[in-house]
Design a binder for these strands. Structure first.
Lengths: 236, 236
DNA sequence: ACCTGAACACCGTTCAAGT
DNA sequence: ACCTGAACACCGTTCAAGT
């Protein structure tokens, strides 16, 4: 049972960390095997492979070759794991435009990359939106870069946070949209009760460029440009 | 096989279901006790009382005085229950402006009530955003009213759905924001690394009217007006 | 301090048996 | 058709015991 035959997926007892890993006995190991960094990396890997429904404390522990309970020496809940992941992702949002491009173009680049990142991580959105930024260094760094760009464009300091929040709200909402099915607005049998809406849904794909853009992309660009126009009264 | 301890539960005493209800035996009851309507109402009641974490299939069944498995004769999953709730809520979004007010004012009223409804039901947002509208009658009715209003304001049919989606994205994102803690942007120990952002957060509450508005409200109004201005090029 | 292993208190869902 | 009751296959989390 302890022997490492390479054909067994080994789903029985609990070891099963993939290929034959030496088993650790109970007790404090000579050097800590876990830490925020390894946990974050493993979580990201798991999400990439199995999606968010595959991100369980058990699966995470298995990937790290520890018992599930060992994780609780480093995080106090699964929510903590999500926060680690979130901050990591925030670091990959593109803020480069805010140092080398005009305000509108900088916001465009930032908003698009922000949406793209979280479109693949929608389960984090309800967590982020309510998450105090304290102790999320990459997140704070992102906000600092954005704020700097707004100030450079002439925005008064007291209006910047509201503007960022408004843009973020639109970005988060749009991120959900990306994973919506193509027929999301198909009224089905209810079409007869909603003739105007049904016609509008059908007209949506008419007269667009070729190849036709993703519906979620055209709605996002429309909203983004509208927001930029509306907000643009302040900056430039 | 266990030995048959089999005592009738009610003879033992405990009225488990809470209110002293007569216990139903197994077998088809003379009249169906459940149905989409009763299930929806009970779910809403449960959510109002205990929040979404209190909405479990067990709790729902208990409130309806049935076994949890009985629910599956009427819905095929918990997701189905959420869809019932969602459609019910959509019916309470205010679309009245689209028949008796100018476009901008109509969108304002609609957007505010839409946000307010889902601010108290944020767990539904990830479900809605990906939910085909088929067989959600109140939802379709809402879209029909909105579409009618856009058409009346002179919008070309092929641009309406994108505009609605853009507005909805902003509304959903903003709904999350409502439940964010007041100190969400407090950088804590990271303040030194983000002086501009920290200053912007502090300046946010300066120079506002009295009493100061909820931060989430001022961001929402700013975003909504910007969107209306930007989109307003089409309608009026 | 930091790990294991065995609980604990839940979930949503399935299914045979009953009427 | 539509209910009950007993499973089933999970969850996240806690905690004593071990080093």
């Amino acid at each position: 049972m302890e022997n490492a035959t390479q054909t067994t997926p080994e789903s029985g007892g609990g070891a099963g960390a993939g290929a034959g890993q030496a088993k650790r006995r109970a007790g404090r190991p000579p050097h800590a095997v876990l830490g925020p960094d390894r946990i974050t990396k493993a979580a990201l890997k798991l999400i990439a492979r199995d999606g968010y429904k595959g991100l369980t404390m058990s699966a995470l522990a298995r990937m790290l070759s520890v018992a599930p309970s060992a994780l609780y020496n480093h995080v106090s809940s699964k929510r903590d794991v999500l926060l680690l992941v979130e901050d990591q992702l925030m670091g990959s949002v593109d803020v480069s435009g805010f140092t080398n491009a005009p305000w509108k173009e900088a916001v465009r680049r930032w908003a698009r990359s922000y949406r793209d990142v979280f479109a693949r991580h929608t389960p984090l959105i309800p967590v982020i939106a309510v998450l105090p930024v304290t102790n999320a260094p990459a997140t704070v760094r992102m906000y600092e870069a954005v704020t700097a760009g707004f100030l450079a464009a002439g925005w008064p300091a007291e209006e910047i946070v509201d503007a960022i929040v408004a843009l973020e709200s639109f970005i988060f909402g749009s991120a959900f949209d990306v994973s919506a099915p193509a027929d999301i607005f198909d009224p089905g049998e209810l079409a007869a009760d909603a003739p105007l809406f049904t016609a509008a849904v059908e007209a949506r794909s008419q007269g667009k460029s070729w190849p036709p853009p993703q519906p979620s992309d055209s709605a996002f660009e429309l909203g983004l440009e509208s927001l930029l126009t509306g907000l643009g009264r302040r900056g430039n």
